[in-house]
């Protein structure tokens, strides 16, 4: 073992990896929030609950139907996305003409209901979810041992973020989405069914949360509170990155995970608040966020 800045390298890399893992979840969750905010102009406070629901769907598929983790990575986002379609059509769509605050209250209320029902049904202690066989064990990277599953989580999240970014920034579907966030009326007059696009955007955003939930299931036990504990930090990430910025949410998500991990090494007492300290500094100096448009 060697030392870096007077700290054992294994500790440093270990925390860096933990930071990257948290960052992987921050990035996926804040990306979904950014997409939803861009199109629907609401801050989706149900996001943590739907992340949790993704993990529960994966657990249920395995427990009751014997469907593997790998299929759940695909199926849970579809199931939760379909639930998102329902939420958007039945509840959220009624609020577009009202103040932002109503959307926030509604989605917050929905989160409480979903989490309450889950707690009622499953208790709050949580159920274990085994790491899939193919990803058990660890790999010797030379400078540290990396648990395979954790490496997979970082790679899967980064891959998914990249894919979403490519779709939004480089395809014609993405161009239509970006245009509709700027001026939905004109885009609709071109013959595009913007209300349906809004519904599907919400579904895609929450499907990303569910995807993150499935990734999280083997790391944190599957429990009704797993979303709530993440989501507060994720909102801070979103504020720091800049509401609605796609690339910003990805970069900030991973970046802040790393910052958090490094703080655990250099100043452990500060690790639980460092993201919020960053948030305060960013809000004071760049109120629109690091990647937000508009600036001061």
């Amino acid at each position: 073992m060697f030392m870096i800045f007077g700290y054992p390298s294994a500790l440093l890399f270990g925390q860096l990896l933990l930071g990257l893992i948290n960052g992987a979840f921050y990035a996926l969750l804040s990306l979904g929030l950014a997409i939803i905010f861009g199109m629907l102009n609401i801050v989706n406070f149900s996001h943590g609950a739907l992340f949790m629901l993704g993990a529960f769907v994966a657990w249920g598929l395995l427990e009751f139907l014997g469907i593997s983790y790998w299929w759940s990575l695909l199926l849970a986002p579809i199931v939760v996305g379909a639930f998102g379609v329902l939420l958007e059509k039945v509840f959220i769509a009624r609020l577009y003409k009202l103040d932002h605050l109503y959307g926030l209250l509604l989605t917050f209320g929905l989160a409480l209901v979903i989490e309450g029902l889950a707690r009622n049904q499953f208790g709050s202690s949580g159920m274990p979810f085994a790491i899939p066989r193919q990803l058990q064990g660890a790999t010797d990277l030379g400078f540290m041992f990396m648990p395979n599953y954790r490496g997979w989580v970082v790679a899967a999240s980064a891959g998914m973020c990249l894919l979403v970014w490519l779709v939004i920034e480089k395809t014609s579907l993405g161009a239509t989405l970006r245009a509709a966030t700027e001026n939905p009326a004109i885009v609709q007059s071109f013959g595009i069914n913007v209300p349906r696009m809004i519904t599907l955007t919400y579904a895609a955003g929450v499907a990303l949360a569910a995807f993150a939930g499935v990734l999280a299931a083997p790391i944190y036990s599957v429990n009704p509170n797993m979303g709530a504990s993440f989501i507060i930090t994720v909102f801070a990430v979103v504020v720091i990155g800049g509401m609605g910025s796609i690339a910003g949410s990805i970069v900030t998500g991973f970046g802040l995970g790393i910052v958090e991990g490094l703080t655990k090494v250099f100043y452990p007492q500060g690790s639980s608040v460092v993201i919020f300290v960053v948030m305060v500094i960013v809000l004071l100096t760049r109120p629109a966020g690091l990647f937000g448009k508009g600036g001061h």
């Binding site: 161009a175 970006r178 245009a179 966030t181 700027e182």
Partner: peptide, 12 residues
């Protein structure tokens, strides 16, 4: 659209 380049605007 500010978020789109000229070609994307044209092909929208």
């Amino acid at each position: 659209f500010a978020g789109l380049n000229v070609t994307e605007n044209l092909m929208l």
